[in-house]
């Protein structure tokens, strides 16, 4: 039987390990600074949430045009329709009566998977944006009029905020165009792009899930899609 006085030792106890946890972005304590800027007295007074996102990710405050460009791109990326897996999963969790943290967690994980897949699909585009020469990768080009029309609307929304990006003069399709805007707004790392996409979509996803009432099991289409069992 183990006694209270017994000392438990093992390799983790004997290894050297730091005694404190390093923080790189936010200062601990009641008066937080984000990347060195006072949150409550400086950022909250003079900057918007998108600017704070960009500051957190890149370490520097964006130029005003970059913040406006990112805001437009994130508006375009914000919808999380129930047709897509993240909101669909969150709705199912809601119907099952899941706790809010479970709904948000399920939605966030699936959103992160979706954003990761989007960024992975556009790795070549990001490499091209980072300094590639010649035309954009063929896979990033628009293939339908619907995509082209969406990029026209993106350019118009940017123009309404005094932002013009030459990269959008090419024939990029919708998602690559949005990633290009985020890239020019300062988000060059794939993980940063994924993070802001998740952040942009989470409110819509949450609202879509909460629009359902818990236990609405019979209102949910069980055979959409249909799973056909085969032995």
């Amino acid at each position: 039987m183990p006694s209270a006085a017994r000392t438990w030792t093992g390799p983790i106890d004997e290894a050297r390990s730091p005694e404190v946890l390093d923080g790189h972005v936010v200062t601990p304590g009641p008066r937080p600074r984000l990347q060195g800027y006072d949150v409550e007295e400086d950022l909250a007074v003079h900057y918007g949430l998108v600017e704070t996102f960009l500051l957190a990710m890149t370490g520097e405050l964006p130029e005003p045009w970059q913040a406006r460009a990112a805001e437009v791109a994130l508006e375009f990326l914000a919808p999380a329709p129930v047709a897509e897996a993240p909101a669909h999963a969150a709705v199912v969790a809601r119907i099952c009566g899941a706790r809010s943290s479970a709904i948000l967690g399920i939605g966030a994980v699936t959103l992160a998977e979706q954003a990761h897949a989007l960024v992975e699909e556009n790795r070549d585009l990001l490499a091209w944006l980072a300094g590639g020469e010649g035309p954009p990768p063929a896979a990033s080009l628009a293939s339908t009029d619907e995509e082209r029309e969406s990029v026209v609307r993106l350019r118009a929304a940017l123009a309404a905020r005094d932002v013009e990006l030459p990269v959008l003069a090419g024939d990029l399709s919708r998602d690559p165009a949005l990633l290009a805007v985020l890239f020019h707004a300062g988000l060059c790392e794939p993980e940063h792009i994924e993070a802001v996409i998740v952040a942009a979509r989470l409110p819509c996803l949450t609202a879509e899930a909460l629009a359902w009432r818990p236990r609405a099991l019979k209102e949910y289409p069980m055979n959409l899609p249909c799973f056909r069992y085969e032995e």
Binding site: V20, L21, D22, G23, H24, V25, V26, T27, P28, R33, Q35, G36, Y37, D38, D42, L43, H46, Y47, G59, L61
Partner: peptide, 11 residues
């Protein structure tokens, strides 16, 4: 927790 990020600055 030891903060090792940027020093305090004013925007």
């Amino acid at each position: 927790v030891r903060y090792i990020g940027p020093a305090p600055r004013v925007s």
